[in-house]
Design a protein around this nucleic acid. Structure first.
Length: 269
DNA sequence: ACGAGCGCCTGTCGGC
DNA sequence: TGCCGACAGGCGCTCG
């Protein structure tokens, strides 16, 4: 579930109403590798007594401001966050990290595939320093074409590169490229100014719709989002394009399943 | 600079 | 029913 719109949904609907102002009593780590840094001992020692002073998103990262530190969370492929009343000795399947608040509630990081990570840092740039701009950053408006042509990767891989743009994942990249009428294998170096404008607009439109629909809910993780009902190409292999009726194709680009309409998204070198 | 391949993990689904 | 491979909202690392 976790691309920009899903992370945004979690922050808006779960974390901000759920944990603002609370004070951490203690923490628990159930899978050691889920804590990227510092070591588990330090992690557990530094948290108690700190209050939650703010919550933000940067790309796909969740940033929880504490009294002295920042708690960063990346959900990767299967991570999820819950806020709930704590019940003594009740650990749910795949729970990896838990924070216990002084009011008897808890924040739990659950992650079946164990790819997700949390960091406790003084300075968030230690972890987020290499992230590209947010797609909604107004500074991109006059810059996007240059940023594309300064590189020469296929568009799909470049849009997935978090150092180029922070927040797109496999679903929203495929949907954005369809919306812009651009082939996923087209070279970023050859994109015209008009195509670049169209692509940035498409990215913002698709992400906005994703956020408005509370993200996409597929597989076992369900958060109440329904963007999956608006997919134009993602997971529609062999089905008819809603615009032209051509069968949607699936190819592999950068080891990621990539869905597109061969008629609406013509390849140009 | 780019791309391919692999590793990290668990779960589900389809085919035989 | 069981087994086996393919695949899954991500990303960091090697190597050529």
């Amino acid at each position: 579930m976790p691309e920009l719109p899903e992370v945004e949904t979690i922050i808006r609907s779960i974390l901000i109403p759920g944990i603002s102002g609370k004070v951490i009593n203690s923490a628990e780590v159930l899978w050691i590798k889920s804590v990227a840094s510092p070591g588990v001992e330090d992690f557990l020692a530094r948290l108690p007594g700190q209050a939650v002073t703010g919550i933000r998103r940067r790309g796909k990262y969740t940033i929880i401001n504490l009294s002295h530190d920042k708690l960063l969370i990346h959900l990767r492929m299967s991570g999820d966050l819950r806020v709930e009343v704590a019940v003594e000795n009740e650990v749910k399947k795949h729970d990896r990290v838990a924070l216990y608040f002084s009011d008897g509630t808890q924040l739990v990081f659950n992650d079946p595939r164990k790819f997700g990570r949390v960091w406790l840092v003084r300075n968030e740039y230690e972890v987020l320093g290499n992230l590209g701009p947010d797609p909604f950053d107004p500074e991109l408006d006059g810059e996007f074409h240059n940023r594309l042509t300064n590189r020469n990767k296929n568009l799909k891989s470049l849009l997935l590169d978090q150092g180029f743009l922070a927040g797109l994942g496999n679903i929203y990249t495929d949907e954005s490229l369809f919306h812009a009428g651009l082939h996923p294998l087209s070279r970023s170096g050859s994109v015209t100014l008009e195509q670049a404008d169209r692509l940035l607009n498409s990215i913002r439109q698709v992400l906005s719709e994703g956020i408005a629909r509370n993200g996409a809910s597929i597989d076992w993780v369900y958060r109440g989002g329904n963007f999956q009902n608006s997919f134009m190409v993602y997971q529609r292999t062999g089905m008819q394009c809603y615009h032209c009726g051509t069968r949607i194709q699936r190819i592999v680009v950068g080891q990621r399943g990539t869905h597109f309409c061969p008629d609406c998204q013509k390849f140009s070198a």
